[in-house]
Design a protein around this nucleic acid. Structure first.
Length: 293
DNA sequence: TCCTATCTAATGGTTACGTCA
DNA sequence: ACTGACGTAACCATTAGATAG
């Protein structure tokens, strides 16, 4: 999977279980920005057009071609294949996989290497050491302490991606069933899902960061404009001739909750949000008198 | 061919939770 | 009911192998 793929199609899979963050960066809005919960399958675009995320079915999917996927039937990870023997842990990698170096590193700690306990009743043992080579392998390769790293095949990755789109976490049974199906160890499937969730989270963080940067830019711009206005108003106030024609300040209304200055919504008034954060709490714009109207 | 950046499988540590004595 | 030991699973930061440019 290439980097460009990630940049174009971003899976926000974790948000399937959490409420996602809506990035409303529409520059036409009088408000600076707002945060709100939103349903999936919506498109949101940055003001510069650089950020376009198509819904939540955005997936990291990518070079992993759909052509390959058609050779796979959808795996129902909720139901184990009849051929799956839970007692058996697959201690091998798929023939499709590429193992470039063959010697494993150290085994996981004794704590994790031991089985028994809650998982025993299901005979679902996620042997974390299974994917790290056996002692036989170590002996076979002179006991070198280099890490085995396989490369998942495109087909395996495609199936994992499809499964991830359905649910970003797997229970032990699902994990083992998927592992069997793919000819991987349960640990490898587990690791893949962990890393996949991490990638999703990282991408989401990048998106959030980009959004916040734009918020800062907008706020800075707004602050600059307000300061300029304040200077102009002070100048007017110091000019007795002009000051006499101004409306008395008592016509202004102040929202008690957000402290926004407001006036009657009449002629040519522009709605100005003093604080986009406060607007979130309000849920609607609060009209304020704009001095330039 | 070497170097570098990037991707990603794998590792080790930590934490939370459930079970049991 | 409370507590500590233990097992399990998920998360996280990091490492390191593979690969493309």
């Amino acid at each position: 999977m290439g980097k460009e793929d990630l940049s174009l199609s971003l899976s926000l899979g974790f948000a399937q279980t959490h409420h996602p963050l809506k990035l409303n960066l529409n520059p036409t809005s009088s408000s600076i920005s707002n945060l709100q919960m939103f349903p999936w399958n919506q498109t949101f675009v940055s003001s510069s057009g650089t950020l376009l995320l198509q819904g939540l079915d955005l997936f990291f999917k990518t070079q992993i071609d759909h052509q390959n996927q058609q050779f796979f039937t959808k795996i129902d990870v909720n139901s184990l294949p009849s051929t799956v023997h839970l007692e058996e842990e697959t201690g091998f990698s798929s023939p499709n996989s590429t193992i470039s170096s063959t010697v494993s590193g150290k085994r996981r700690s004794e704590r994790e290497g031991t089985s028994g306990g809650a998982g025993d009743d299901l005979d679902v043992t996620l042997d974390r050491s299974s994917s790290r080579g056996t002692s036989d392998e170590e002996e076979e390769h002179g006991g070198e302490a280099c890490r085995k790293k396989l490369r998942l095949s495109k087909d395996q990755s495609a199936v994992l991606e499809d499964t991830f789109k359905e649910h970003d976490t797997l229970n032990p049974k699902q994990k083992l069933a998927l592992a069997k199906k793919l000819g991987l160890t349960a640990r490898q499937v587990e690791v893949w899902f962990q890393n996949r969730r991490a990638r999703t989270k990282l991408k989401q963080t990048e998106v959030d960061c980009e959004y916040l940067k734009r918020c800062v830019e907008k706020l800075t711009e707004e602050n600059r404009r307000l300061e300029k206005e304040a200077v102009e108003l002070r100048a007017l106030k110091l000019s007795p001739r002009l000051y006499g024609h101004m409306s008395p300040p008592t016509t202004l209304l102040m929202c008690p909750s957000c402290e926004r200055v407001a006036g009657p919504s009449n002629h040519n008034q522009r709605s100005v949000s003093l604080s986009p954060w406060l607007q979130m709490a309000h849920g609607s714009t609060f009209d304020v008198v704009h001095p330039r109207s």
